[in-house]
């Protein structure tokens, strides 16, 4: 794939995104006009123009905190992915593990983050570790399920064919089950990466030295809704960027789907 292909794909993407862009702009315009006409105080509802202006002035602090959040998100998600992959392979080879472990993971998904986040911070401090753990807690199970279901979706004929060629369990996994799981893996990835950002911000909100979560908490306590909203926009942009990266990774790793 060369540069021309990428730019053509980008142009196509932009064209498809145009209606969404228009509606976002309309919402912002409506908001601006409402604040202007109603005379509502800026400490209750700041206009988007003010959010942008104050956000720009605080850009150095915002960038620093966004970087901390990004670090927490990516480290947590990397740990989560690595664990989910290793465990998915183990489960594929030893089905008993699935029955032993899945109920535990399902329960882990029922824990309310609001209650867990302060506890994890209490146990592990204000550093990176509690964020990694919380991001992993939120994203690990969806990724594991995506992979395990993906292996199961392997075409039975392909498995029989490989067996007839003399392939053992390992070769069947490597040549058929793993590639079959790719679409499932990427579906899980796109969803989980967005949860990961939210989880990291939540962890920071519960206690952190740096990060968008703690920035939002401080701005709220100082009655600065404009800065709260600026941080919200930054976190949205961050999430969208990671989502786009996941889509790009899928596009790059499945060349047969774009031919």
């Amino acid at each position: 794939m060369d540069i021309a292909d990428v730019s053509r794909a980008a142009a196509r993407g932009l064209k498809r995104a145009a209606p969404a862009l228009v509606s976002v702009i309309l919402i912002l315009l409506g908001w601006e006009v409402y604040v202007d006409l109603s005379g509502i105080s800026a400490t209750a509802l700041p206009a988007p123009s003010r959010v942008a202006e104050q956000g720009w002035q605080a850009r150095a602090v915002l960038a620093e905190n966004a970087l901390a959040t990004l670090t927490a998100t990516l480290s947590g998600f990397a740990v989560s992915l690595a664990c989910a992959f290793v465990l998915s392979v183990a489960i594929d080879f030893v089905p008993l593990l699935r029955r032993a472990l899945f109920p535990v993971f399902v329960i882990s998904q029922t824990l309310p983050l609001v209650a867990i986040a302060p506890l994890v911070v209490l146990w592990f401090g204000f550093g990176l570790l509690p964020k990694i753990l919380l991001v992993a807690l939120v994203t690990f199970f969806p990724m594991l399920v995506a992979l395990v279901d993906g292996y199961e979706a392997t075409d039975r004929d392909i498995t029989r064919l490989l067996r007839s060629m003399g392939a053992g369990r390992g070769q069947v996994f490597w040549r058929a089950r793993l590639p079959s799981a790719l679409p499932f893996f990427f579906a899980g990835l796109r969803i989980s990466i967005t949860y990961a950002v939210v989880a990291a911000i939540f962890a920071e909100y519960a206690g952190a030295a740096r990060g968008l979560g703690i920035f939002i908490l401080n701005a709220k306590n100082n009655f600065r809704p404009d800065l709260v909203l600026a941080a919200v926009f930054v976190s949205s942009a961050l999430t969208l960027a990671l989502f786009a990266l996941a889509v790009l990774a899928q596009y790059m790793s499945q060349p047969w789907r774009r031919a």
């Binding site: 075409d155 004929d157 392909i158 029989r160 064919l161 007839s164 060629m165 040549r175 058929a176 590639p179």
Partner: peptide, 10 residues
């Protein structure tokens, strides 16, 4: 050497 009903190409 076995050929399944559907082509089973990967």
């Amino acid at each position: 050497a076995f050929m399944p009903q559907r082509d089973a190409l990967m």
